[in-house]
Simulated scan of single mutants.
Amino acid sequence: MRVLVIFSHPCRESFNFGVVQTVLQTLKEQGHEVRLRDLYEEGFNPVMHADERRGYHDEGDNVAPVAEYVEDIVWCEMLVFVYPTWWYGLPAMLKGWLDRVWLPHVTFSMPTTEAGSRPKMQHIRAIAVVTTCGASWWLSKLVGEPGRKTILRGLRALCAPRCRTLYLAHYKMDTSTPESRDRYLTDVQRKLSAFAG
């Protein structure tokens, strides 16, 4: 399977960097064709400037500022997001990637007076989120996990009708222990293997 891994964390010494290494190793050991986009390392600009926004709905032209990233999502059959959950949501870098790369006419058709919007990413059959959360499980649920919903509901709606999803979170990251982190990496390897297999 063609798998695109989107990694969004600024620090190489972070636990999240170890998580993405586990994700990449797991997928490659299963024989998947993997592309990594390390948004911070690449210096991806998450800011949509005025001229880009003015051309956002212009079919063809809207792709030009982010063409290589659009090519990635057209290529892949599975998406894996690895990121820290900050303020219950996505890091600004990742949200900016969604804003700029998931463009109309590429990922969905624009609605008309005759028909509503239609999803155009039906080649994507699976989406996984691998994240860390400072908050506990119950507090995350109480707030509503907006980051989880953005990807596994909003983004999924543009993919294949039976697109499978996986959500793996290490909650209470701020009080984690070496043992809890090891358990999480083992879970990631085991559950992602089963999901991607």
Results as ranks from 00 to 15, higher is better:
residue 79 L to T: 01
residue 96 G to L: 07
residue 174 D to Y: 13
residue 6 I to S: 09
residue 12 R to L: 13
residue 88 Y to C: 04
residue 61 D to V: 15
residue 47 V to K: 15
residue 150 T to H: 07
residue 49 H to A: 15
residue 2 R to A: 11
residue 117 S to I: 08
residue 137 W to F: 15
residue 123 H to S: 04
residue 90 L to H: 01
residue 60 G to S: 10
residue 99 D to K: 01
residue 72 D to G: 05
residue 77 E to H: 05
residue 98 L to A: 05
residue 60 G to F: 05
residue 190 R to F: 04
residue 72 D to I: 09
residue 34 V to C: 05
residue 148 R to K: 12
residue 77 E to M: 03
residue 49 H to E: 12
residue 71 E to M: 09
residue 97 W to N: 00
residue 173 M to I: 13
residue 1 M to E: 08
residue 197 G to Q: 13
residue 38 D to W: 03
residue 185 L to S: 04
residue 156 R to T: 06
residue 34 V to H: 02
residue 78 M to P: 06
residue 102 W to N: 05
residue 28 K to G: 13
residue 181 R to N: 03
residue 86 W to Y: 01
residue 151 I to M: 12
residue 158 L to G: 08
residue 131 T to S: 09
residue 68 E to V: 14
residue 97 W to H: 01
residue 135 A to G: 13
residue 18 G to R: 05
residue 108 F to T: 07
residue 52 E to Y: 12
residue 132 T to L: 06
residue 86 W to M: 04
residue 100 R to H: 08
residue 136 S to C: 15
residue 5 V to M: 07
residue 148 R to I: 06
residue 163 C to D: 11
residue 35 R to F: 06
residue 180 S to V: 12
residue 66 V to L: 11
residue 8 S to C: 06
residue 171 Y to T: 15
residue 41 E to K: 15
residue 32 H to V: 07
residue 173 M to G: 11
